[in-house]
């Protein structure tokens, strides 16, 4: 026999989700964060297994060359060259079987878009004095508040535009290169590649374990919040919900500590003595040498061109 409460129309039960002003609640946001993270991790693995230009390069060579381009971008001064490098990353994405729209979306959300937003005030003479290119508005007179000076005419300056274009270009080119590296390399290969930078083996072991336990803990966070959502008809007062979130963080920390003890025992039982051994890496191929020479050329050529356009 079906109990009365189960026979009731479920539409009469208040649903938990949107809280104030139609925004989703903290439980839904955390579920979204965890789900997006897990999805992105799977997408990364899928892209890294495709056939493409960067996927074919030895991870050690790829790590060193991508770092070389990132460092080169960090010392450039000409926005033309920096945006040229950004264009180069788009070509690399296409050559690495990455959809251009997917790549642009992955790169620009969130850091470059945030950077573009925060740099807006730097366009104006209030922050970056210089040659006016566009007058925004006039004030009755200028104002001085301690170290801050607000002129009577607020203008966009040539120097401000140059600052913004250089800054956003550098951020987007650097983020694009980092995203290319992570998208086209399996995480395990990338960690092993760190050996080429003389990173100690024990540190690489910890990084690898960290990655694996991040996935485990994110799954746990997801499960905790889905379980909470499934038994929530309505959120309680903010204070009690804060205590609930903190208790789940505390629980996760306690669980983390217990897992670390279990993992340590498991490692000892398998003969772990603190000495870490890794598989012998594969040999670097001719293709990798060609890529090295190409990147070296790109870096040297772009830096020379940069210094020609914007001398020290």
């Amino acid at each position: 026999m079906i109990p009365d409460w189960l026979a009731q129309d479920s539409s009469s039960v208040p649903l938990p989700a949107p809280s104030n002003w139609g925004r989703s609640g903290f439980v839904e946001k955390t579920i979204d964060n965890a789900a997006h993270f897990l999805k992105d991790t799977m997408v990364n693995e899928t892209v890294a297994r495709r056939n493409g230009l960067l996927q074919a390069i030895d991870p050690r060579v790829k790590l060193i060359t991508v770092l070389a381009i990132i460092v080169s971008v960090s010392i450039m001064r000409s926005p033309i060259i920096i945006w040229g490098i950004y264009g180069f990353t788009l070509l690399l994405a296409v050559a690495s079987s990455i959809s251009l729209m997917f790549f642009i979306k992955r790169v620009w959300l969130f850091i470059p878009l945030f950077s573009a937003f925060i740099v807006i005030p730097a366009l104006f003479n209030v922050v970056t004095p210089g040659d006016p290119v566009w007058t925004a508005f006039h004030l009755a007179h200028s104002y001085d508040f301690g170290p801050y000076h607000i002129p009577d005419t607020i203008t966009v300056t040539r120097q401000g535009v140059l600052t913004a274009v250089t800054f956003i270009g550098r951020v987007s080119a650097s983020v694009s290169l980092a995203v290319l590296l992570t998208l086209t390399t399996l995480w395990n290969d990338l960690l092993q590649a760190l050996r080429v930078l003389k990173v100690p083996r024990i540190f690489i072991l910890i990084l690898g374990m960290t990655y694996r336990y991040i996935i485990l803990l994110v799954h746990t966070v997801y499960d905790i919040h889905v379980a909470r959502k499934s038994r929530t008809l309505h959120y309680g007062p903010t204070g009690s919900e804060q205590r609930w979130v903190a208790s789940r963080m505390g629980y996760l920390l306690k669980k983390t500590y217990m897992i670390s003890q279990d993992v340590h025992n498991a490692m000892l039982s398998r003969g772990f003595s603190g000495d870490v051994r890794t598989l012998t890496p594969s040999r670097i191929q001719g293709y990798d040498y060609a890529w090295c020479i190409f990147v070296l050329f790109i870096c040297v050529f772009s830096i020379v061109l940069d210094r020609t356009l914007v001398p020290w």
Binding site: G25, F26, V27, K29, T30, N33, A34, F37, I202, L205, I206, L207, M209, T210, Y213, I214, L216, L217, V218, V221, Y235, T238, E241, Q242, V245, A246, R248, M249, L252, L253, T256, Y257, I259, S260, Q261, V263, H264, M267, L268, F272, G274
Partner: peptide, 24 residues
Amino acid sequence: SRHVPLLALGAAFSFVIMMFNVPI
């Protein structure tokens, strides 16, 4: 010798704690 898993899991926890949304 407990430091290897403890640091790895401590790092994983530090990463994951930022994922929690705290109602304010």
